[in-house]
């Protein structure tokens, strides 16, 4: 993490990473609008500035509502494999998502990427529903068909960012997304190895390290140790 405390600037960074930043930037313009309009319109300037302000508020509120729907969908998609009997133990989605977030933090990904990688990890295995019987949970997240199903399901929802490409079967061309994909794969396989395969954390880490990127494996080792 270094000497610089990312926590202190996280709210600002999160704000700038929002899709609706034009609304946030434009809101102060309402005050300027009033200043210019008052000499020309008198009391009508209140109406003009007020209406524009309300429009901005409504836009912000609706955008936030859409984001909330997206977050809720990701949570629900994460639950489905659990209630569908496709994950060995309840709470897999929470565990994997939390661990992915820690690994992403260790790798100093951007705040938006941290959010996306946590969401992708949470709902990344919903595609296992496409199997008649999920044969080998111990295989973890290396099955292309399950990945394709997962990407297809998530892709049905708009505004899910890069999640479909992260959980899909093809390696993303975007280097940032490629790292995020690697995090999701590794964390998912690690969780399956521990909770489905019965391995202890050290053995599980050793097993998944064979296929994962070295920097992500190192971050996973640190993040898991932090616990």
């Amino acid at each position: 993490m270094g000497e610089f405390d990312r926590g202190s600037v996280a709210p600002i960074a999160d704000t700038l990473a929002r899709d609706d930043w034009p609304v946030l930037v434009a809101l102060p313009a309402v005050a300027s609008l009033f200043v210019f309009a008052a000499p020309r319109f008198g009391w009508w300037a209140f109406a003009l500035a007020g209406l524009v302000y309300v429009a901005g508020f409504v836009a912000f509120d609706r955008t936030r509502a859409a984001e909330q729907v997206h977050e809720e969908l990701v949570t629900t998609l994460g639950r489905i494999p659990e209630v569908g009997g496709l994950a060995v133990a309840p709470g897999r989605s929470d565990r994997v998502s939390g661990l992915a977030r820690k690994v992403a933090d260790e790798l100093d990904l951007k705040p938006r990427s941290v959010v996306e990688v946590a969401a992708a990890a949470r709902c990344g295995v919903v595609g296992r529903l496409g199997y008649d019987v999920w044969p080998h949970l111990r295989l973890g997240y290396d099955d292309r068909a399950a990945a394709r199903w997962s990407a297809g399901i998530v892709d049905r929802a708009p505004a899910v960012g890069r999640i479909p490409s992260i959980v899909g079967p093809s390696v993303p061309t975007d280097s940032d997304a490629a790292v995020m994909r690697s995090i999701v794969e590794l964390v998912s396989a690690y969780d399956d190895a521990v909770h489905a395969g019965g391995l202890d954390p050290a053995a599980a880490l050793e097993k998944v390290a064979e296929t994962g990127r070295a920097d992500v494996v190192a971050a996973l080792a640190t993040a898991d140790a932090i616990g």
Binding site: V23, A26, L27, A29, V52, G56, A59, V69
Partner: peptide, 21 residues
């Protein structure tokens, strides 16, 4: 310009919310 963008965002956000659901 800022005023128009705000108004446009309000209009577009209605469809955004519906399509999210």
């Amino acid at each position: 310009t800022a005023g128009l963008i705000i108004v446009a965002a309000a209009d577009a956000s209605r469809r955004q919310a519906v399509s999210a659901r």
